[in-house]
């Protein structure tokens, strides 16, 4: 009974804080606490990684291959593999993403059924879990296309294309990053004033010419932002490449499209979970994490810079 009345009076106290005279000091403090917790956690993570990783990073670490079962040496093959992966991915995803955005924005009205359907698809593509992309890469690119090529052109039992390879990993990754490119290109297309396009048409230019000479150059910052964000995402995701091409350790660098490759994120995963002596690999592990973080953060920073420039332009026009 006593507790009950206490509860009621407590409730009254709280509600009275929220009525007329309350200035919202309690909700303000509570929500501020949320913000501070987020900031603190972020700071702790970054601090921990920087402090433990900075000592490992040296030119040798960045430029030499792993030695002694990952317990010493560097991560050059992983950096090289990551770069190769995102480059191939970018080559595949940028043209498709940009053209999709142009088609939706320049050729189709916003309300047409087809536009809506494609938009729904883009939205869903963005929300599919990355591991499902990995499954798809295995089932479609390797199982269907790769094996298909093998059975058509190559005789013999050894798979040539029907096996994990950098080309399949980057194609899988390009599907994963496609929505990112489309969305940021569209954002840029929206900033191009209609008058500019009208002027181009008035001078007798066709639609394709207008797209090439007016729209694409104007949308370039947005396309670059999209590319950077896509690279950022592609460099960080591990689940899609686990079965489609990433390897634990390779004595050589990938030189053909059907080679396997090492990758930084996968390298971190393998070292963290499968190392026989975690204490011995820790410095290298932290070093790799720091390199990956620096890479993704600088890409993010670049993207923010480009977007900022784009916004400034929007304000001016």
């Amino acid at each position: 009974m006593g507790i009950d009345t206490e509860n009621i009076s407590l409730k009254k106290n709280i509600t009275s804080l929220f009525t007329k005279k309350s200035s919202g000091i309690i909700p303000k403090t509570l929500t501020l606490t949320s913000v501070l917790i987020i900031l603190t956690v972020l700071a702790i993570i970054l601090f921990d990684i920087v402090v433990h990783g900075i000592g490992t990073i040296s030119w040798e670490f960045l430029s030499s291959p792993p030695k002694n079962g990952m317990e010493s040496g560097g991560i050059f093959p992983a950096i090289f593999g990551t770069a190769a992966l995102v480059m191939l991915m970018t080559v595949a995803v940028i043209p498709i993403g940009v053209m999709t955005a142009i088609y939706l924005h320049e050729y189709r009205s916003e309300t047409s059924k087809l536009t809506r359907l494609i938009r729904i698809a883009i939205n869903n593509l963005a929300s599919i879990p990355s591991i499902v992309f990995g499954l798809f890469g295995l089932g479609f690119f390797i199982g269907f296309i790769g094996n298909g090529i093998d059975s058509m052109f190559f005789e013999g039992s050894r798979p040539v294309w029907g096996q994990p390879a950098i080309i399949w990993a980057s194609l899988t990754m390009s599907l994963l990053t496609l929505p990112v490119v489309i969305i940021s290109t569209e954002e840029a297309l929206r900033t191009i004033p209609q008058e500019m396009k009208d002027a181009s048409y008035a001078l007798g230019a066709t639609k394709l010419q207008t797209i090439r000479k007016i729209i694409l150059p104007q949308a370039m910052p947005g396309i670059l932002t999209g590319a950077i964000l896509a690279i950022n995402r592609g460099a960080g995701e591990v689940a899609p490449i686990m079965f489609t091409g990433a390897a634990y350790y390779l004595p050589y660098l990938p030189s053909k499209l059907n080679d396997q490759f090492m990758e930084m994120g996968y390298h971190i995963f393998v070292m963290a979970t499968q190392s026989p002596d975690i204490e011995a690999t820790k410095p290298i592990l932290y070093g790799t994490v720091l390199v990956l973080l620096i890479l993704t953060f600088s890409l993010n920073f670049l993207a923010i810079l480009f977007r900022y420039k784009l916004r400034m332009k929007k304000v001016r026009t």
């Binding site: 995701e237 993704t296 953060f297 993010n300």
Partner: peptide, 15 residues
């Protein structure tokens, strides 16, 4: 800060 948090690759958070 929020953008930074979302920019951390999940493998790094897992680590």
């Amino acid at each position: 800060a929020i953008e930074m948090l979302s920019g951390i690759p999940s493998v790094v958070l897992g680590f």
